[in-house]
C-alpha cells in the first residue's frame, strides 16, 4: 500500500512537471491566441483589451501559477474558439477515445502476440519469415496510409464497414485495426525474440526432462516468462497510442479527443491543446503505474517495495 502511495506521489509530481513544460512551450510559441480571438480586423486597442482581459499580459510565472491553481480545481480553462469549458469538451469525447484505445490494444495484443508466438515456434522456417515480413511492414507503414487503405478496400470497395463515424461495432472495426497495426508489428517482434530467449533457458530444459507435455511446458513455463517484457511495454505504449489517436480519429471522423486535439491545433486553440496533452500525460503515467503493479503478480522476484 505504501508503495502504491509512493508511486502515486511520484506520478503526481510527473504531471506537475508535464503541466509546466506544456505551459512553457505554448507560452513560447509564436502563435498569438489573442489575434485569433479578436479576428483580423480588430484594432490594436481591442487586441490589448482582450489580452488584458485574459491575463495574457501578466509575467510568465504569474500566468503559470494561475493556470496551475485552476488546474488543481479541475478547471482546464476555457476554449476561446469553441467558447466552452475545456474539461467538458474533453469529458464529452473521452469515452469514444477510450473505447477506441481499448479496441486498439485488443487488436495489437491478440494479433501481435499470436504472430510472435507462432513465429518463435516455427523459427527459421518460411512461416517465420513471412510473419516477420508482415510485422516489419506493419511497423513501417504510416497510420494514415493504413487507415486510408483499409477505408478504400473494406469500406469503399467491399462495403463491409461504414466509411466513418461512430455508434455501432462495425464503426469500430477499421479504426481499431488501424490503431492496432503498428503495435501489432512491435509486439509480434518483441514476443518472438522474448519467446525464443525463454525457450532456450535452463528451466525449459528442466521441464522437458521432467517429461511434461509440450503444451504444458509452453503454457505454464514459457508464456509467463515471455510475457514479462511485453507488460512493461504496454504501459509505455499508451503514450504511442495518444499520438496514433490524433491521426486515426481524423481519418475516420471518430469523435474522440484525438479529433478534438487535431481541430484545436489547426485553430491554435491553446487551452484545448494543453488540456488534451495533460489528459494524455495522465494516461501514460497511469499506464506505466498499472504495468508496474501487474508485473509482480506474474514475477514473484519483483516485489512491491514500500
Amino acid at each position: 500500500m505504501a508503495y502504491i502511495a509512493k508511486r502515486l506521489l511520484f506520478s503526481a509530481l510527473i504531471l506537475v512537471g508535464v503541466s509546466f513544460i506544456t505551459f512553457a512551450l505554448l507560452y513560447l510559441l509564436p502563435a498569438d491566441p489573442v489575434r485569433q480571438i479578436a479576428g483580423r480586423s480588430a484594432t490594436a486597442q481591442t487586441v490589448e483589451n482582450i489580452r488584458h482581459q485574459l491575463g495574457l499580459d501578466q509575467p510568465f510565472f504569474v500566468q503559470y501559477a494561475r493556470y496551475f491553481w485552476s488546474l488543481v480545481q479541475g478547471d482546464l480553462g476555457r476554449s476561446y474558439v469553441q467558447r466552452a469549458e475545456v474539461s467538458s469538451l474533453i469529458a464529452a469525447r473521452l469515452p469514444a477515445s477510450l473505447l477506441l484505445m481499448a479496441a486498439g490494444i485488443v487488436v495489437e495484443l491478440v494479433f501481435g502476440l499470436t504472430l510472435g508466438i507462432v513465429a518463435a515456434l516455427r523459427r527459421g522456417t518460411a512461416t517465420d519469415q513471412a510473419l516477420m515480413i508482415t510485422s516489419f511492414t506493419a511497423v513501417s507503414a504510416p497510420q494514415f496510409v493504413v487507415g486510408l487503405l483499409l477505408l478504400y478496400v473494406f469500406a469503399v470497395e467491399l462495403g463491409w464497414f461504414p466509411i466513418g463515424g461512430y455508434g455501432t461495432f462495425a464503426h469500430l472495426v477499421l479504426p481499431a485495426v488501424t490503431l492496432g497495426v503498428l503495435g501489432m508489428g512491435w509486439y509480434s517482434r518483441m514476443m518472438r525474440s522474448s519467446m525464443i530467449e525463454v525457450l532456450r533457458q535452463d528451466y525449459i530444459r528442466t521441464a522437458r526432462a521432467k517429461g511434461l507435455p509440450r503444451l504444458t511446458i509452453f503454457v505454464r513455463h514459457a508464456m509467463p516468462n515471455a510475457i514479462l517484457p511485453i507488460i512493461a511495454m504496454i504501459g509505455i505504449d499508451i503514450g504511442l497510442f495518444m499520438s496514433g489517436i490524433v491521426v486515426v480519429e481524423s481519418v475516420f471522423g471518430w469523435p474522440g479527443i484525438g479529433q478534438l486535439a487535431w481541430q484545436a491545433i489547426q485553430r491554435v486553440d491553446i487551452p484545448i491543446i494543453m488540456g488534451v496533452t495533460l489528459v494524455s500525460a495522465c494516461a501514460i503515467v497511469l499506464g506505466n503505474l498499472l504495468a508496474d503493479l501487474v508485473t509482480p503478480l506474474i514475477d514473484p522476484r519483483i516485489k512491491l517495495r514500500d
Binding site: Q201, D202, Y203, R205, T206, A207, R208, A209, K210, G211, L212, P213, R220, H221, P224, N225, I298, D299, P300, R301
Partner: peptide, 24 residues
C-alpha cells in the same frame, strides 16, 4: 519417449540458479 523421461530416467543439471522456473 516423453512418458519415460522424468519417470524411468531423470536428470539434474549444473546450474541450480537457472534450472528452476523463476515464476512458479
Amino acid at each position: 519417449m516423453r512418458p519415460i523421461r522424468g519417470d524411468r530416467v531423470a536428470m539434474i543439471f549444473q546450474e541450480p540458479m537457472t534450472s528452476l522456473n523463476p515464476v512458479l
